[in-house]
Design a protein around this nucleic acid. Structure first.
Length: 271
DNA sequence: AGGCAGGCGCTCC
DNA sequence: GGAGCGCCTGCC
C-alpha cells in the first residue's frame, strides 16, 4: 500500500473526463489499467490517494498522475474577467492531464470518432481482450494490457470488426502497421515541437484536427493543445461571441479545455 | 424506433 | 478552403 499526496486530484472527475477509457469507478475508489499494470486507487483524504502497490512503483504513478504539475497555479492563471472559465475550473478542479502511453492514446482516439464514451470503452476493452497480454483478473474476469503495435497489427479486418470498430478498422490497422514496422515511433514523435507533431499526426490515415489535438494533449502532454469537438463549439457559441480566447490561456489551453468540457457536459446532464 | 454521438476521408466546387 | 455526404455501431 502506497500513499501519495495529491492536490487537485479527483478520481471520479478524471474517470469521467474523457481522456482515459480504462478507469472503472468501484464501490471504493477506482480500478485503473495503464502502462501494462492494474492499479486500485482510493481517496483517503481531501488530498491523499492510497494505491495498492509497493514503494518501487511510486515514481511511475507520480508521473502518471502528473503530480509535479501545480494545477492550483494553472487555475490561478485564468483571466479574472473570464467568468465562464472560472466557473468551469471550479467545477473541474480535480481533473489532471494524465501521462498516458502515447501509442495507446493514439489508437484509442482514432477509434473514438463518432462514438459515445461508453461505446469507446467497450471497443477498447474488446481490443485489449483480442490482442493484449493478460495481466491479472478481477472476480474471475481476466484483465488485459493494451496491445503492442505488433499484436494489434496482426489482427485482421474481421477481428477488428468484432471489436466494434466499424469504418475505423482500416484507420487503426494502418497506424498499427506503421508502428509495428518501425516507420513511426512514440520516441521519434516525442522529439517534435508541437506544430510538427500536429502535422505528423494529421498525416496519419483517420487522424484529423480533433484527434490530433487529443493525442497531443493526452498522449504527449502538450498542455497547450486545445481539441475542438462539438462541446467546445457549443461553449464558443454560447459564451464567447468573439471565439474562445486561446492565446490568453497559453501555455495551459488544454487544461482549460478539460475544465470547460467537464462543466459543459455537467450542465447538459452528462455527468 | 430512430436520431445522434467527443470526425474523418473523399469528392466535388 | 469549404461544403456536402457516407460511414459502423451502440446509446438514450
Amino acid at each position: 500500500m502506497l500513499t501519495l499526496n495529491t492536490p487537485n486530484l479527483s478520481l471520479n472527475a478524471i474517470a469521467a473526463s474523457g481522456q482515459c477509457f480504462r478507469w472503472t469507478p468501484m464501490e471504493n475508489g477506482c480500478r485503473i489499467v495503464a502502462h501494462g499494470r492494474v492499479l486500485h486507487a482510493r481517496q483517503v483524504g481531501p488530498e491523499k490517494l492510497a494505491l495498492d502497490c509497493g514503494a518501487a512503483e511510486k515514481a511511475l504513478w507520480r508521473d502518471y498522475f502528473d503530480l509535479d504539475t501545480d494545477y492550483a497555479a494553472i487555475i490561478g492563471a485564468i483571466p479574472p474577467e473570464d467568468a465562464y472559465l472560472r466557473a468551469a475550473a471550479e467545477y473541474g478542479q480535480g481533473i489532471r492531464i494524465l501521462r498516458q502511453d502515447p501509442w495507446e492514446v493514439l489508437i484509442t482516439f482514432i477509434l473514438s470518432q463518432r462514438k459515445s464514451i461508453p461505446a469507446i470503452r467497450q471497443a477498447v476493452e474488446r481490443l485489449c481482450a483480442a490482442a493484449g497480454e493478460e495481466i491479472g483478473s478481477e472476480e474471475g474476469m481476466p484483465l488485459y494490457a493494451f496491445p503492442s503495435p505488433e499484436a494489434l497489427a496482426r489482427l485482421n479486418d474481421t477481428a477488428l470488426q468484432r471489436c466494434g470498430l466499424g469504418y475505423r478498422a482500416p484507420y487503426v490497422h494502418r497506424t498499427a502497421c506503421a508502428f509495428a514496422e518501425g516507420r513511426l515511433t512514440a520516441a521519434g514523435l516525442e522529439t517534435l515541437p508541437d506544430d510538427d507533431l500536429f502535422s505528423a499526426l494529421c498525416g496519419l490515415y483517420g487522424v484529423g484536427r480533433k484527434i490530433a489535438h487529443c493525442v497531443l494533449l493526452f498522449g504527449f502532454h502538450r498542455m497547450n493543445a486545445f481539441p475542438v469537438d462539438v462541446w467546445m463549439q457549443r461553449v464558443g457559441a454560447a459564451h464567447y461571441p468573439g471565439g474562445i480566447p486561446l492565446a490568453e490561456y497559453a501555455p495551459w489551453a488544454g487544461v482549460m479545455q478539460q475544465y470547460m468540457f467537464a462543466y459543459e457536459r455537467h450542465l447538459n446532464g452528462k455527468g
